[in-house]
Amino acid sequence: MNDFLLIFRRDANFDAQLTPAQMQEVTKPWQDWMGSLAAQNKLADSGNRLATDGKVVKPGSIITDGPYVEVKESIGGYIVIRASSLEEAAELSKDCPILATGGNVEVRQILPMQR
């Protein structure tokens, strides 16, 4: 088993438009999906959400406001799952609720540091 980082990208404007009640409705599929991963003992870290605002630091002490290239591709959060291969990790990401709202999941294997 290896650990894989799942990076959730979506349109940053989407969350901002939600009412608290809609937010509640959005949360439930996430709990179901993560609960399902956890029931398979494949959730390694329940991760975090990220604030939409950010800054980008470039050489020469240049600091610009994020987000970056495309608001539509803003990173909304991440989790870490356990899988036997990159293919399995991608398969497990198919039910991720981010897909239902036009977002996507980037799947990357975590390579532990050699110390």
């Binding site: 439930k28 709990q31 179901d32 993560m34 609960g35 956890a38 029931a39 003992n41 959730l43 329940s46």
Partner: peptide
């Protein structure tokens, strides 16, 4: 939902 929370906390 409670079992989801419990599992996310600890398998």
């Amino acid at each position: 939902q409670l079992y989801n929370k419990l599992l996310i906390l600890e398998y």
